[in-house]
Design a protein around this nucleic acid. Structure first.
Lengths: 129, 129, 129, 129
DNA sequence: GTGGTCTAGACCACA
DNA sequence: GTGGTCTAGACCACT
């Protein structure tokens, strides 16, 4: 389910957090849906429970999930908030990625079509089904 | 010249490497142009020479520059060929960033215009003069 | 009546206890007034009776209510005397909160007017009618 | 230096974080001043380094300090930012504390003078000396 | 020597 | 059975 690279320079808990964000963002994990419990995920990924917990804690800090002691962890429904900082960060990333793709010779047409493809998928995913 | 954030969590050498990639990608640093020597850059940025060295080694490893022992480091001209792996990686990143922006509520119009803006800048930079 | 946030990190029983203290302190619940029975409150809040019990036990322990087995729970009239410990505790809390507000840049004027506002409301609530 | 209650219901790392915030807020710890290293503090408090680290991480998340791997942890200078959420939280706390003090019979005069005392100390502390 | 990650394993509070 | 805390101890990356 989650492909983690234990040898990566990026910490495991961070990789895991990003994977889960991906699932939330793509609406694979729906609002208020329960995430796998720390222990279960720990067993499935053969990773220490503390590491899973750290990932969940990180996600909670960043507003993607909420945890109820004794009940479980759940996807936090997105609320209007001050996302401007995060969005600016993403724009900067976008800029870097696009520049490098252009530099590596990806033709503009292909780039545009790729983006439109992604966008329609993303929007599709975010509409309730 | 290089804006490095010594307070950032990201290692200094990594920040430096990324900045240089940016300059290469935007064609500010032209192919085969010589980079400032480790000692000079070390002096300008008041940063340990070892850190600069490490950034340069990283850049060489990733194929952005080449070093001629005793002469200096130079921008490696981009070659057609095995960029497909790198490009696929970038596409994956692109996908993640776009999904998250959509999720955070950036309207499609704004997203498109932002992208076109970035693209025209990137292409402008990459046209040989 | 009671706004409980089931998604909060703070245990439900603790939230409930604090809400009730608030009502007692603001004189909405008068001395010797009977509190709603565990079962009734449990039904209204759709919360496990055990959780209500725990909140009531907590309140009894902290001296805000007293329970007559078989009859119910009642607001304990406040007595003069050994409140000094509690008051000192509150002063310490007050100090912390004020310091942090000053640190965060709340202007003194705003702070004063906020406090006077709160005080007049609190005193109004505590005057016997 | 730090009085921690190991038997408290409040986690040790949280107690520690609050103590440090107090020191920062009262300007005992100045901007960019280095905090005791994780290991040193761990030794002094005879608390596990991981617990100290957790406190520091929490403080970093909340914007009170920044950590430079390999160098140490430092007080983050306060910047204008969106503190409104935190401030509202503090106002709610203030309200509760004041209400309870009034309820416990602290006379308004004493309350006011206490507050002015605290305020002048807090403002004094925040001005550079 | 610094912060940071990860594991193994114990224990607690909440529901 | 859930999340959460804490300890002990190993190892890594950065400066």
């Amino acid at each position: 389910m989650f492909e983690l690279d234990l040898r990566s320079r990026k910490p495991v808990y961070e990789q895991l957090a990003e994977k889960i964000i991906e699932l939330i963002v793509c609406n694979v994990l729906k609002p208020d849906q329960q995430l796998p419990s720390v222990r279960v995920l720990s067993g499935e990924l053969t990773i220490n429970p503390n590491t899973i917990q750290k990932a969940y804690r990180e996600l909670e800090h960043r507003g993607y999930i909420y945890s109820l002691p004794g009940k479980g962890s759940f996807v936090r429904p997105r609320e209007a908030g001050d996302n401007s900082a995060r969005i600016n960060n993403l724009k900067a990333q976008l800029s870097k990625v696009l520049s490098e793709m252009v530099y590596l010779g990806v033709p503009r047409d292909e780039l545009i079509s790729t983006i439109e493809n992604l966008l329609s998928r993303a929007e599709g995913g975010n509409i309730d089904d």
